[in-house]
Computed example of a mutant assay.
Amino acid sequence: MTAVDNLWYLADEADQRAERTYHRLASDHENYVEYERTRSVSRSRFRTVADRIRENGLPYGAHTLVYRESGALLLVRHEGVDMWVVPGGEVHADESLREGARRELREEAGIDAAYEGLGVLARVNFRSDGHHAWGVLPVFAARAESTDLEVRDPDGEISDARWFRDLPEDTRDRAELLTWRERAL
Rank of each mutant, 00 (worst) to 15 (best):
N56M: 02
E90T: 14
T48P: 00
E116W: 02
A133E: 06
V91H: 07
E69C: 09
D15E: 11
W134Y: 14
I158Q: 09
A72Q: 12
Y32H: 13
A184K: 10
V49W: 03
E69L: 10
E182L: 13
A161R: 05
P59E: 06
E19C: 05
A141D: 10
D160P: 04
E116I: 01
A14T: 04
P154A: 08
P87Q: 02
R77G: 09
N56G: 01
E55C: 01
V139F: 07
S27P: 03
I111V: 10
P154T: 04
H92Y: 13
T64F: 05
E182G: 13
T48K: 05
R174E: 14
E30I: 12
R68D: 13
P154Q: 07
N56L: 01
L121M: 11
R52D: 10
I111G: 03
L178V: 12
F140K: 00
V86M: 06
W180A: 13
E116C: 03
F46C: 03
T48Q: 08
L7Y: 04
M1Q: 13
E55L: 05
Y9M: 11
R127E: 14
A184R: 13
D148E: 15
R20N: 12
T171L: 08
G130I: 04
A113E: 01
A142N: 02
E157H: 11
Y9T: 14
T21C: 05
R39C: 02
T38I: 06
S146C: 06
D129R: 01
R43V: 06
V151M: 09
I111R: 00
E169D: 15
V91S: 09
R106C: 04
E104C: 09
E108V: 01
G61F: 04
A109H: 02
R20W: 15
Q16H: 15
T21I: 01
G110R: 02
A72L: 03
V85S: 00
G61I: 04
F164E: 12
L58W: 03
R162F: 07
V41T: 13
I53P: 04
G130A: 05
A142K: 03
R123Q: 14
L25G: 11
A18T: 02
L97G: 04
V81S: 09
R24A: 13
R162E: 15
D153L: 08
L177N: 04
P154F: 06
G89P: 11
E107L: 04
H63F: 10
Y22Q: 05
G119Y: 07
Y9C: 06
L65A: 05
S70D: 15
D112Q: 06
V91F: 12
D15L: 10
H29A: 09
G89Q: 07
E107G: 00
A62K: 01
L185T: 11
D51P: 01
H63D: 02
S70F: 12
G89K: 07
